[in-house]
Write a protein that binds this DNA or RNA. Structure first.
Length: 281
DNA sequence: ATTTTCTCCTGCATGC
DNA sequence: TGCATGCAGGAGAAAA
């Protein structure tokens, strides 16, 4: 499922194709995903204009033209593939975009999302309009844009007085973006912090450690995803798989790799959490 | 104000 | 074989 690392890798991949090129045509095979797609606005803002840059903010992929931004979110099951034709190669292909790359070659970008938790949007204006947009206005900082110490300080400061479990706390996009369910469990495991601990009871020192393990986990995943995402296009639309070593996620009842005790599973705010009751306190 | 639960959606695994 | 059930979860709305 796309968390920050997968969106980052995808963004880089899309950037390589789209940046400097033009989306010449947008075909929407379905008018809505999570919400209705503003098709007219998308055409006005994105189609027919040179793509100045392809960016990631949080788990959103942004396609910037001089008129505004095309906004893509992959939800749970979204993916983007490049194909040589507009013909859908998969079920749940909801939109296809004709691309003329900067070097003049042509391809089709396919947006696929079986569960339709994703979104496609468009907004007029520059970065100040983007920052004010409802999707982005309340987002916390990018975890990889800060030094570990600054991130630790941020988490510590904002967590004082909070009784929410630290796991749900770091998954809150208003606190810090991009830490999804898998990497939340992984980062807490690496930091030795129990997921049910109250966010406000975690020390500054331990938040520094957690900040470092969040960054470490995300960067490892980007490195792993980067390898597979490179041949994304070459393997004819087969999705890359992320060879991230997961220490606890989806390993309920299996031995902790550090101490051998069984990895435990619980539900927090409706999501599965995995942890080692011995290593995490 | 903070925190939890519910909802959206489909594919897959399970059990009868 | 087929059908019902439950689970997976990003994120926002609704409820607590």
């Amino acid at each position: 499922m796309p968390e920050l690392p997968e969106v980052e890798c995808l963004t880089r991949s899309v950037r390589g194709v789209l940046q400097g090129g033009v989306i010449k045509e947008a075909l929407f095979l379905r008018p809505d995903l999570r919400e209705p797609i503003p098709i007219e606005r998308f055409r006005e803002v994105v189609v027919g204009h040179r793509v100045e840059s392809v960016l990631r903010r949080s788990k959103y992929l942004l396609v910037r033209t001089s008129f505004g931004y095309g906004v893509f979110h992959l939800g749970m099951t979204g993916n983007i593939l490049f194909r040589t034709s507009a013909e859908p190669c998969r079920k749940h292909t909801h939109a296809v975009f004709a691309v003329t790359e900067a070097n003049g070659s042509n391809s089709w970008l396919h947006f696929i999302d079986p569960r339709r938790f994703g979104r496609i949007d468009a907004l007029c204006g520059d970065q100040s309009q983007l920052d004010a947009h409802a999707f982005f206005a309340d987002l916390g900082p990018e975890p990889l844009d800060l030094m570990a110490e600054a991130l630790g300080e941020h988490l510590f400061g904002i967590s004082r007085g909070r009784s929410a479990p630290v796991k749900t706390f770091i998954m809150d996009q208003r606190i810090v973006v991009g830490v999804g369910n898998i990497y939340a469990s992984e980062a807490l495991y690496r930091a030795g912090i129990h997921p049910e601990r109250k966010a406000g009871s975690v020390s500054r020192r331990r938040y520094d450690r957690l900040a470092a393990t969040i960054q470490q986990t995300l960067e490892l995943a980007i490195a792993a995803g980067g390898t597979s995402i490179n041949d994304y296009r070459h393997i004819n639309g087969e999705s890359g798989c992320f060879q991230v070593e997961l220490n606890v996620y989806d390993r309920a009842d299996e031995p902790c790799l550090a101490c051998g005790n069984s990895v435990r599973k619980l539900k927090q705010a409706g999501r599965s959490t995995f942890f080692c009751g011995h290593c995490q306190t």
